[in-house]
Structure formats: structure tokens, C-alpha cells
Design a binder for these strands. Structure first.
Length: 936
RNA sequence: GCCCAGAUGGCGGAAUUGGUAGACGCGCUAGACUCAAAAUCUGGUUUUCGCAAGGGAGUGCAGGUUCGAUUCCUGUUCUGGGCACCA
């Protein structure tokens, strides 16, 4: 009987579907385990072989855990809102609902083809109104909440109102404006609009202003992605930064908690480090510098180096800083305007990256140094960002590289406060030595000076110690169509949630979801508003004569739906809650989350925020979403090139191309075998190639190759469906795992898959003979056979636990090689092998388990066997014996040998005696079970 | 520019805690079986010197710690990911 993988795989896929093998119940006496993949965005290109890498790893782990006796939740869904579908709609007129549906169907088919054990009954789609109803609902919970800094948690906004009525905002400082101060009386005297504006400054989901890329020619806001080299990707039109009204999530209130609780997560240090850097906690001081012209006005700076305050030679404001207009002198106005215009065209990335070219403009204004009373010039420059700290810095050229470059470029005199440590040509940025030229800080060690400086600043009433976070509030609106609409309406211009009393009074009760209206076209609305602004009958709600009621026309960003989807899988049909308490209390957080590092800060940080907020408000019992994180690497494309001789239709093989003037062209990897081009297939590829001619090298056309991103445009996309058709899903799964460590990126190399396929066929032959069929027999296994299977059980189990799937596959190969050479066809051995290979090659294992061994339930429910230690431990060891660290000979000794005895035997060895050259070894190093080294 | 990661034969990679570098697979190569091919099986395969026995070198590059370093430390180069509206 031959290994007919396509019949076998078809059969068992059907069996699993019919028997609901992958259905998971929320009620079980087994311990729970939650394995989750980052769900995909269903793009029009379909899955390529790179996508399933992480899915295969998590699938193996989920199956293994189930065999280990856990109730395993392993769901899948689709992150279905997003820019590409909308862009496609703009170009082709096809509605995103239609294209998304089509893409999902394709993805689903491709995923099924690989044999994943997803419980598809729990599938979620973020663009499904039944799903985004709850995305909107959670948004409303954030809108209706504020962050209590005393209790360190989110609380309902009604409790803040009660507090305001009682005592004003004394005990609830405003996160947006620390100057804001009112008492109970003032609160009560505020009108409706003022009250709501005040509350907006506290809400966790709030309205503010932010800069976006604005393209006048296209009349729309662009994503960073859509801006290439300072112009729009479509059409190459100029773009500028423009302030627009936006929604935000007040993630900054959670900065400290997001930072602290990283410690309890089982994520890679690198990943945690990236989040720490993103949060960017820094400790320093906020200091006020009074303006020379108007001492009542101040420029407020944040600095991590208050100890260098006597080295301040100038101030730098972000060009967008609110004071720039008012302080700029008339003589400098023109230059400042010109500079601001330049900065408008610069992305934040460019502004931060720029080191070669120093730019800036002098405002003509001065501040007074609070200690020396000297006049200090105020500049603006792009290297100071409006969103970071206070948007203004005190520049200390002798102690900061960028300040130093700036001072040199604009010929600003530099004050040296570091004595000999500063050499006049480069800033001194270390913290050794003592301060000089620094008034009361003179002769104080730099390491102590920060505290002394802060105390002096506080005593003089100039400022205070401050912790600053680089992280900014998360922009939460997009001027787009294909996203979740906001459950927000404007009543006479004031934003209200759709579940508030005022809204009900004016437009009747508003049930969630606020559905995305179907539209005819996707062009932007007026003034950079989203396409929804064009849908008048949707935007304008029935209003009484004296009131206007309109809907919010922004939509939510891509990460809205993905910030909480892992909760919905627990209880996907619930129409009363986002998920029941019973469900979330049972499944709790995700035990293993698998995905790429490209989500290091975006998605992973926002999910953590939503989880913490839902926890604070009492909806879930845990405050971190993902306990363990496994990052998978990317599979890159392995491109192939052909070389066309200039102005001809002749293609020359790679080795001979230097003899001609050639153009390098991508060629579809699917018509290249290894590096050899299928010239007939190439001719058939495109009409213009029909009469192509080839200059061969040794009878073959050899292509060039290179590693690039896998993408359609590079003709290097390999569809898993094609691989599965040729080799079967089991081979495909094992091969992807065999490629290398799961977290490392590597290029796809089709050649190697045959080795894995050969291995599976070899394994098959342990069970089936081509003529005789099933050849497994009842016979007691030998010691050697037991040793190999028990070592394999141990190694494979250990390797799965540490996500080292490539070495597990190697061990299977070693095991099958050995069993083959031992001619072993014994049931005890082979039954265990079928069970432990089931997570990797589920179809094959099921065939062996049920058809072969005659079991009547799935191999998924066969317990993963336990290994016996007596068969995994050797009792002797072939030691490498080294002289001065160089291995000279191998000698075998029992593991429990006495050291004296061993030394005697080693010294008596002829080879060793030769290398000792008659000298006495100074030292004999013997590490039990490892090695022996003689030091001469 | 800043942050994070990686670099080992012709190729993918192994070496789990500082202890025999190159497991396993691909490719290449020699052979067996075959009329032939496919499939399968057996041997060889880091490099260099040598007929061989045996020796030298070797884990991106330059140093360091150690009896011993792919592994730890310092510096450096290159490649990949992220940098707030791609998802």
C-alpha cells in the first residue's frame, strides 16, 4: 500500500468536520488552555506560504496540549476592516463588504487545506455588525470613564460628576490641563457645554486635535503608508501636516501600569524592551523660564538633566508650539513663517532622523535664566517635537549632542559647565566628574547634582520634579469609510454618546450597533472628512426645529476590533454582552499568543490597554490579555531573475550574462526548478515571450536568485495550496517547521521539501508494505527499539514545550531512520510514534491510528505517552579527551566511574602520552558526562 | 537617526546550563538494483596540507575573560523588524 496522501487527507478532513472533532466546550472538568493566533487581515492576494508558519506552530501546540489532557480553545477569525479594501473599492467600485467576503472565503479555504484544528464555530469578523456592536460598546465604556490617579484605576464618569458637585476637581487633577482648577460652586455654575467640555478632558476616550497628512490635490487625509518621499503615493501630489479634530484613547494615564505589569508577562525580553522604549518613561523636572518681554508668561520645559541648568545657552520650541506666534518679533516673523512652512512638509520620522542638516529659526524673543538672570535667545527647530514633554527644551550645548550641533551651526556661544571633561568640539554626555560655572552647583558631582538642582528649582518656585512618558495618547479616528462607525452624535455641535439621555430625547433610543451605511462611492467628504460625511441621510438625524443632530463621520482605526477579539472567541454568539462572565472567568487570558514582531507596540499595547480598562470597570477578572507570547519570523520570498539582452528578446543564462549588456527581470518562481528555468513555460507566460530565445549554459538556463519580501509584484509568491497539492498538508506542515527556529526569518526554499516528504514515506513503510499492506505485528520490542522510541518521546515533548519544532522534526527523522535499519514493525513502538507525530502530521497519524491500529476515536484524544527514564539515560559516555583544550582522542567510560580510576586510564592512553610529551599535567578537568581536559 | 533582533559548510539549520562545531535535511558525488528511468538502498561530502597515518585553520569582523567561547564581555560591519493613519 502506497502513501496516498491526497485520499488520506481528504478523508480525515471530512471525518473531523462530520464529527465536530475541533468543537470546544466552555464547560469541562479538564484544565483550560487558550492558544491564539494573531488573526489575519484577509487581503486580496490570499495566503502565501509565509502566513501559515505561526499558525502551524500554534496548531501543533494546541493539539499537543489536548493530548496532554487540556480543554484547548484554539479559534480563528478575520481582522476584516482596513485600508486596502477601501482603496480597492475606490479603484474598482466594488464594495468592501463584497470583496472582504470573497477574500475571507479564499483564506478559509486555504487555511482548511492545511488541516488546522480551529473551532470554526467561534469565528469572529471585526466587520460583522454583531461583532462591532461590542467594539462600539467598549468604546462607550471608555467614553463614559475617567482615570482616578489616586485609586489608580478607571472609574465611571458619573462618579467624577458626583465628585465635582461635592468638591470640584481638587482631588481629581485634569490629565489634559494641570492648571485647570474649579470648586463645587464653579462646577454648578457651568453651562451644559462647559461641563461637557470639562468632562471631555477626563474621559478615557476623548476628542482632541492631531496632525494628519493632508493632500490638497486628492482632497483627503493620507496614512503614513500612502506618503512616499514627501508626496502622495497615488499621483505624487504634495502633502502637508494638518491639524484635525480626532478621537483619542487616553493611554497615557495607563503608562505606568502598562510599564510595571510587563514584568509579569512571559514575553521575550526584546519584546518587552520595545514596549518599555515606546512608553519611554523618563524622570526629570519641569522648569519655567520667564519671558524677557513679559515676565508673567513662561516657557515651560521638561528636562531629564536639571543638573545642567547653568549650561543653558538657548531655548528651542517646537515650530508648532502655541507660544511661537505671540513671542516672535516682527523682524523675525518672515523667517519664522518660512521655517514653519518647511516643517509642515516634514514627517515626524524625518524630523527625528535628521542629523546631517541642522535647521531652525530665531524668534527674536528671549527668556530670563531663573538663576543667572541672563537673557537667553529662543529658537524654533524641527528636532523638538510638539507632542513630547512640553514641546520645548532648554538647550545645553556642552552636554547634549544635538544642542551642540545646533549651537555650532548658528554660532551660539557655548557655556562650558564640565571643565576639562568638555573638549570644545563635542558635547560631554557622560555623568562623571563635577560641575563648574554652575553657581550653587559648583563642585558637586554630576551623579548627585540632579537632586540638588531639583530641590533648588522647587524652592525657587520655578518648577517641580516630573516623570515624563514619551508615549502619547492613541489617535482613535480615521477619515475613512471601511471601519467601525462611532456611536456618537452631535447635538448642536456638542458630542454625546448614543446611549445618553440627551440623545434619546432628541432622536429616540439608540441601539447598538450604529451600522455602517452602504454607500455608492468612497470618495472623501468635504474638508478632509471621511466618506461618511457624504451620506447626508445617515449623518443628519431627525431634529426638532431648534436643534441640529448629526452623526460622527469618522470611523475607528484598524486596531479597534483587534484590541479585544480574543475575548469574543470565548462567547461569540452572546447578544447581551461582549462575552459572559462565566466564559471570561473560565478561559481568562490567552495562555499562548503567536504572531509576528511587527505588532510589538501597536496591537499588543492597545490590547493591553483595553484589557486593563475592562478589568478596572469590573467586566473581566484579569488585567493582561496575553500571558505568553511567541513571535514567529517571516518567510521571505526567494526571487528568481532572468537576464534579457538589451533591445532583444534573447535571454542569457546567469553564468554568461556578463558577456552582454542585460536587464535583470523577475521571473515567476513557479516555473523555475531550483535555479533552472523551464523555458517552455516561460515562453507561454506572456505573448511577448512566445518567440523568446535563450543562450544556455551547459544545456540549461540558470536563473539568478535573491531574497526579498514575498509579494505579487516580485513574482516570488508561493501558494500553500500548490505545495499541498504536490506533497500533502502533512509534508507541508512538517517542512515549514523543519525550515528552522520558529522565531527566525528565512527565505522559502522549495527544494528541501522533498527530504521531508521522503521521511514521511519512509515512516509510512514502517507500517505499510507495498504488497503486503499493514505489517505491524505483536512482538515484544527490544531494548534498542525501546531506547529509540522513549528518547524520541522525551525529545519531541521537550521540544514542543520550548517551541523548538525544527529539532522535533529532526528527532522524528532520526527515530524513523533507526527503526528502519532495525527493521522494526512492532505495535508498542509504532503506536506510540503515531500518537506523538499527530500534532505535526494529523492526517497521517489519524490514518495510522484509526485505519491501521483500528481505534475508533480520534488520535487527538489519545494521551501523549510518557517516557520511561530507564530508556532515555545512557550509563556510559564516549568522552572527548583534550590536551590544552584540543580534543585528541575519544575514550569511553561508565558514568559512575571514580575520578582517580578515570585519570589513571586517561594518562595510560598512548595518544595522550604522545601529546603530553612526557610532561606531568598541571590539572585534570573532568566534567561528568561532558568532557575531560588535561592542562599542561 | 533611535529602539529591537540576527549572522555557523554550496544551502536550510543543530549544538537546551561555557564542555567533541557542523546533528537532521537539501544539494553534490560514487556505487547497488534496473534493458532504462523513477522509486528505494549504501558510502562520501567545512576547508587546507598529506599517498596515508596524521596535522593546521575555522561559527560576520577586531579584541577580551576562561583550562575550554558558536555560547559571556567590549567595540565594529552587514541584514531584517518597529518608530504612533498598513495590518
Amino acid at each position: 500500500m502506497e502513501y496516498a496522501f491526497s485520499n488520506i487527507e481528504k478523508k480525515w478532513k471530512q471525518y473531523w468536520r462530520e464529527n465536530h472533532t475541533y468543537s470546544v466546550n466552555n464547560i469541562s472538568d479538564k484544565p483550560k488552555y487558550y492558544v491564539l493566533d494573531m488573526f489575519p487581515y484577509p487581503s486580496g492576494a490570499g495566503l502565501h506560504v509565509g502566513h501559515p508558519l505561526g499558525y502551524i506552530a500554534s496548531d501543533i501546540f494546541a493539539r499537543y496540549k489536548r493530548q496532554k489532557g487540556f480543554n484547548v480553545l484554539h479559534p480563528m477569525g478575520f481582522d476584516a476592516f482596513g485600508l486596502p479594501a477601501e482603496q480597492y473599492a475606490l479603484e474598482t467600485g466594488q464594495h468592501p463588504v463584497v470583496t472582504t467576503e470573497k477574500n475571507i472565503a479564499r483564506y478559509r479555504e486555504q487555511l482548511d487545506n492545511i488541516g488546522f484544528c480551529y473551532d470554526w464555530d467561534r469565528e469572529v469578523r471585526t466587520s460583522d455588525p454583531g461583532y462591532y456592536k461590542w467594539t462600539q460598546w467598549i468604546f462607550l465604556q471608555l467614553f463614559h470613564s475617567w482615570y482616578d490617579r489616586k485609586l489608580n484605576k478607571a472609574r465611571p464618569i458619573e462618579e467624577l460628576v458626583i465628585l465635582f458637585e461635592k468638591e470640584g476637581n481638587n482631588n481629581a487633577p485634569c490629565p489634559e490641563d494641570d492648571q485647570l482648577c474649579f470648586d463645587s460652586k464653579q462646577w454648578k455654575e457651568m453651562g451644559e457645554q462647559a461641563r461637557r467640555e470639562t468632562l471631555m478632558k477626563y474621559r478615557l476616550a476623548y476628542q482632541g486635535y492631531a496632525e494628519v497628512w493632508w493632500c490638497e490635490a486628492l482632497g483627503t487625509v493620507l496614512a503614513n503608508d500612502e506618503v512616499v518621499n514627501g508626496v502622495s503615493e497615488r499621483g505624487g501630489h504634495p502633502v502637508i501636516r494638518k491639524q484635525m479634530r480626532q478621537w483619542f484613547l487616553r493611554i497615557t494615564e495607563y503608562a505606568e501600569r502598562l510599564l510595571q505589569s510587563l514584568d509579569k508577562l512571559d514575553w521575550s525580553e526584546a519584546m518587552k524592551e520595545m514596549q518599555r522604549n515606546w512608553i519611554g518613561k523618563s524622570i526629570g523636572a519641569e522648569v519655567k523660564f520667564p519671558l524677557a518681554k513679559d515676565p508673567d508668561e513662561h516657557i515651560k520645559v521638561f528636562t531629564t538633566r536639571p543638573d545642567t541648568i547653568f549650561g543653558v545657552d538657548f531655548m528651542v520650541l517646537a515650530p508648532e508650539h502655541e507660544l511661537v506666534n505671540s513671542i516672535t518679533t516682527s523682524e523675525q516673523q518672515e523667517e519664522v513663517n518660512r521655517y514653519k512652512q518647511y516643517v509642515q512638509s516634514r514627517s515626524e520620522r524625518e524630523r527625528m532622523s535628521e542629523v546631517k542638516q541642522v535647521t531652525g529659526a530665531f524668534t527674536g524673543a528671549y527668556v530670563i535664566h531663573p538663576f543667572t538672570r541672563k537673557q537667553i535667545p529662543v529658537w524654533i527647530s524641527e528636532y523638538v517635537l510638539a507632542g513630547y514633554g512640553t514641546g520645548a527644551i532648554m538647550a545645553v550645548p556642552s552636554g547634549d549632542d544635538r544642542d551642540h550641533a545646533f549651537a555650532q551651526h548658528f554660532n551660539i556661544p557655548i557655556t562650558n559647565i564640565f571643565g576639562n571633561n568638555y573638549n570644545g568640539t563635542a558635547a560631554y554626555t557622560e555623568k562623571q566628574g563635577t560641575l563648574e560655572n554652575s553657581g550653587f552647583l559648583n563642585n558637586i558631582k554630576l551623579s548627585d547634582a540632579i537632586d540638588v538642582a531639583i530641590r533648588a528649582i522647587v524652592d525657587a518656585g520655578l518648577g517641580h520634579a516630573k516623570v515624563n512618558y514619551k508615549m502619547r495618547d492613541a489617535g482613535f479616528s480615521r477619515q475613512r469609510y471601511w471601519g467601525e462607525p462611532f456611536p456618537i452624535v452631535y447635538i448642536n455641535g456638542i458630542p454625546y454618546a448614543t446611549d445618553e439621555a440627551e440623545t434619546e430625547n432628541h432622536i429616540g433610543e439608540q441601539e447598538l450597533p450604529v451600522e455602517l451605511p452602504l454607500v455608492e462611492h468612497y470618495k472623501p467628504g468635504p474638508e478632509g472628512e471621511g466618506p461618511l460625511a457624504n451620506v447626508e441621510e445617515w449623518v443628519n438625524l431627525s431634529a426638532q426645529s431648534n436643534v441640529t443632530v448629526t452623526r460622527e463621520t469618522n470611523t475607528m482605526p484598524g486596531y479597534a476590533g483587534s484590541s479585544w477579539y480574543f475575548l469574543r472567541y470565548m462567547d461569540p454568539f452572546n447578544n447581551e454582552e461582549f462575552a459572559s462572565k462565566e466564559a471570561t472567568n473560565y478561559w481568562k487570558e490567552v495562555d499562548l499568543y503567536v504572531g509576528g514582531t511587527e505588532h510589538a507596540v501597536g496591537h499588543l499595547l492597545y490590547s493591553r490597554l483595553w484589557t486593563k480598562a475592562l478589568h478596572d470597570l469590573g467586566y473581566i477578572s484579569f488585567d493582561e490579555p496575553f500571558k505568553k507570547l511567541l513571535n514567529q519570523g517571516m518567510i521571505q520570498g526567494n526571487s528568481r531573475f532572468v537576464y534579457r539582452i538589451q533591445d532583444t528578446n534573447t535571454f542569457v543564462s546567469k553564468g554568461l550574462k556578463d558577456q552582454y549588456l542585460t536587464h535583470e527581470l523577475h521571473v515567476d518562481v513557479n516555473i523555475v526548478n531550483g535555479l533552472e528555468l523551464d523555458t517552455e513555460a516561460f515562453k507561454a507566460l506572456r505573448p511577448e515571450y512566445n518567440n523568446a530565445e535563450f543562450i544556455l549554459d551547459g544545456g540549461k538556463y540558470i536563473c539568478g536568485d535573491g531574497v526579498e519580501k514575498m509579494s505579487k509584484s516580485k513574482y516570488n509568491v508561493v501558494n500553500p495550496d500548490d505545495v499541498v497539492a504536490q506533497f500533502g498538508a502533512d509534508t507541508f506542515r512538517m517542512y515549514e517547521m523543519f525550515l528552522g527556529p520558529i522565531d527566525v526569518s528565512k527565505p522559502w526554499e522549495q527544494k528541501g521539501i522533498e527530504g521531508v516528504h521522503r521521511f514521511i514515506k519512509k515512516l509510512w513503510r514502517l507500517y505499510f508494505d507495498e504488497q503486503k499492506g499493514w505489517i505491524v505485528m505483536e512482538e515484544a520490542p527490544t531494548e534498542a527499539e525501546l531506547r529509540i522510541i522513549h528518547k524520541t518521546i522525551k525529545k519531541v515533548g521537550d521540544d514542543i514545550e520550548r517551541f523548538s519544532f525544527n529539532t522535533a522534526v529532526s528527532q522524528f527523522m532520526i527515530c524513523v531512520n533507526e527503526l528502519s535499519s532495525l527493521n522494526c514493525h512492532k505495535r508498542t513502538i509504532l503506536e506510540a510514534l503515531a500518537v506523538i507525530i499527530a500534532p505535526f502530521a494529523p492526517h497521517l497519524a489519524e490514518e495510522l491510528w484509526q485505519t491501521g491500529f483500528g481505534h475508533t476515536s480520534s488520535v487527538l484524544d489519545a494521551p501523549f505517552p510518557a517516557y520511561k527514564e530507564q530508556y532515555t539515560i545512557d550509563n556510559s559516555k564516549k568522552y572527548p579527551v583534550a590536551v590544552n583544550g584540543k580534543t585528541r582522542v575519544e575514550m569511553e567510560f561508565p558514568l559512575d566511574i571514580d575520578q582517580k580510576e578515570l585519570e589513571k586510564a586517561v594518562l595510560a592512553d598512548a595518544t595522550i602520552q604522545k601529546w603530553l610529551e612526557g610532561k606531568e599535567p598541571k590539572k585534570i578537568i573532568y566534567v561528568k558526562g561532558k568532557m575531560i581536559n588535561l592542562v599542561v
